[in-house]
Amino acid sequence: MGITVNGTDVDLPDDPRVSLLDLLREKLHLSGTKKGCDQGACGACTVLVDGQRILSCLALAVQYEGRSVTTIEGVGADGALHPLQQAFIEHDGFQCGYCTPGQICSAIGMIEELRRGVPSHITGDLHATSIPYSRDELRERMSGNLCRCGAHNGIIDAIAETYRANPQPEAAE
């Protein structure tokens, strides 16, 4: 058994040292997932595993046997852009584009966490069943994804607009 990446089964690497990130980038040539620090500090390598966001640089590929991985290449449907991808363009939520795939995958995973009522560092009431949807919640929850060009305002605008208009987004498969 291997790993499912964007709906396709792929073999586990022979070398157990290979991170999920390097499997994607170097073996599968899915280089949309970026390597910014390779030590879990920047979020550029964020992918979705069974719908949850993880840092693929801190994940050994062999640990993900049987799991379903969605990368930026798998976010849009049938070649069309995901509404969040379109919103990033409209709101100029990037400059160089290097952190962008990680920001987008992270936001998709983050919205599901918010909908499940998972509290964040700034959530006032940890026992609340639903979390108020605010820019500060978005900003706090996206703070693990660094951007050095300074597109922060556009990124939050893009996320806020996408999910305000569409409060029940389709989860990435």
Partner: peptide, 21 residues
């Protein structure tokens, strides 16, 4: 005007130097 390279970048399809095989 929105960036002409926007669609490439949001899809992760813009090739950077250490990604050319």
């Amino acid at each position: 005007v929105s960036r002409v390279d926007g669609p490439l970048k949001v899809r992760g399809a813009a090739p950077f130097a250490a990604e050319i095989a």
